[in-house]
Computed example of a mutant assay.
Amino acid sequence: MKSWDQRIDDVWDDASGEEVGDETIARIDALAAERGADDARAEFERAGARDSAGRPAEAVVLYRRALELGLDEEHRPQCVIQLASSLRNLGEYDDALAVITAEEERSPDGPYRDAVATVHALILANAGQPARGLSVALLALVPHLPRYHRSMTAYAHEIADADT
């Protein structure tokens, strides 16, 4: 028999490439019910299903619940990223910025740092600070460049001031 994680992965694989809807939500909810209402990972998966179905307000509640319950270090940053993105989609930019900047401070060198920076940049752009968003994106790219780290870092900081 497949593990719970494998069955969750199967649902997401089945939903790959198509719009997520009520059927995917129902399948995720059924699997989540196996673990109970106080399981952080189950709540995270339920949130992700709603988020993927274009229901960010429902997802936000579940993401927050998953974080309160305590996720492992693989899923916690994913949950934070997805929560911040959902808040951005709802136009709750200040809250989204607070969530994503707290993650940047908590795990500046974590495996999801580029995803965190990407969401941070999107939030800033949507919040009317596109130059700061570009700066965040450029700073995330700098470590991946073969050269020009110092100059590109300086340019990124300079661009950020264009929104002020």
Score class of each variant (00 low, 15 high):
138 L>K: 09
101 T>G: 03
84 A>V: 01
97 L>F: 00
80 V>C: 05
107 S>V: 07
121 A>Q: 05
102 A>K: 08
138 L>R: 09
100 I>G: 00
96 A>T: 02
124 L>G: 04
128 G>W: 02
104 E>F: 06
126 N>P: 07
100 I>E: 03
86 S>W: 01
135 S>W: 03
116 V>M: 01
121 A>R: 07
114 D>G: 08
116 V>R: 03
107 S>N: 14
106 R>F: 00
98 A>V: 01
123 I>K: 01
100 I>Q: 03
80 V>N: 06
127 A>R: 10
94 D>T: 11
133 G>I: 02
134 L>N: 08
113 R>E: 07
109 D>E: 15
83 L>I: 08
113 R>F: 03
119 V>C: 08
99 V>F: 00
106 R>A: 11
118 T>C: 13
118 T>Y: 15
87 L>F: 00
121 A>P: 02
121 A>D: 04
117 A>M: 08
109 D>L: 12
80 V>D: 05
136 V>Q: 11
128 G>L: 05
112 Y>T: 13
111 P>R: 11
83 L>G: 07
138 L>W: 01
116 V>Q: 01
81 I>F: 01
86 S>I: 02
81 I>K: 06
111 P>Q: 11
85 S>T: 12
135 S>F: 02
99 V>E: 11
117 A>C: 09
130 P>R: 02
116 V>Y: 00
103 E>L: 12
123 I>S: 00
115 A>M: 09
104 E>K: 12
126 N>G: 15
82 Q>L: 11
123 I>P: 00
101 T>N: 09
87 L>N: 01
103 E>F: 00
107 S>I: 03
115 A>V: 05
121 A>M: 05
92 E>Q: 15
128 G>P: 05
122 L>Q: 13
117 A>H: 10
74 E>Y: 14
104 E>C: 09
74 E>N: 13
135 S>V: 05
95 D>G: 08
77 P>A: 09
129 Q>K: 15
93 Y>V: 03
79 C>D: 12
78 Q>G: 10
100 I>P: 04
81 I>M: 07
89 N>A: 13
80 V>K: 02
92 E>N: 14
99 V>L: 06
74 E>G: 13
75 H>L: 15
137 A>T: 06
102 A>N: 06
107 S>F: 01
78 Q>N: 13
95 D>V: 12
104 E>Q: 14
76 R>Y: 00
114 D>F: 14
98 A>H: 05
135 S>I: 06
137 A>E: 06
77 P>R: 08
135 S>Y: 02
118 T>N: 14
80 V>I: 13
107 S>Q: 13
89 N>G: 15
78 Q>C: 09
108 P>D: 04
90 L>P: 07
120 H>V: 03
129 Q>S: 14
76 R>W: 01
75 H>S: 14
82 Q>M: 11
127 A>N: 14
77 P>T: 10
111 P>I: 08
75 H>C: 09
117 A>V: 05
138 L>N: 03
133 G>S: 08
118 T>A: 15
82 Q>H: 14
90 L>D: 05
117 A>S: 14
85 S>K: 12
119 V>I: 13
120 H>W: 10
91 G>S: 08
108 P>L: 03
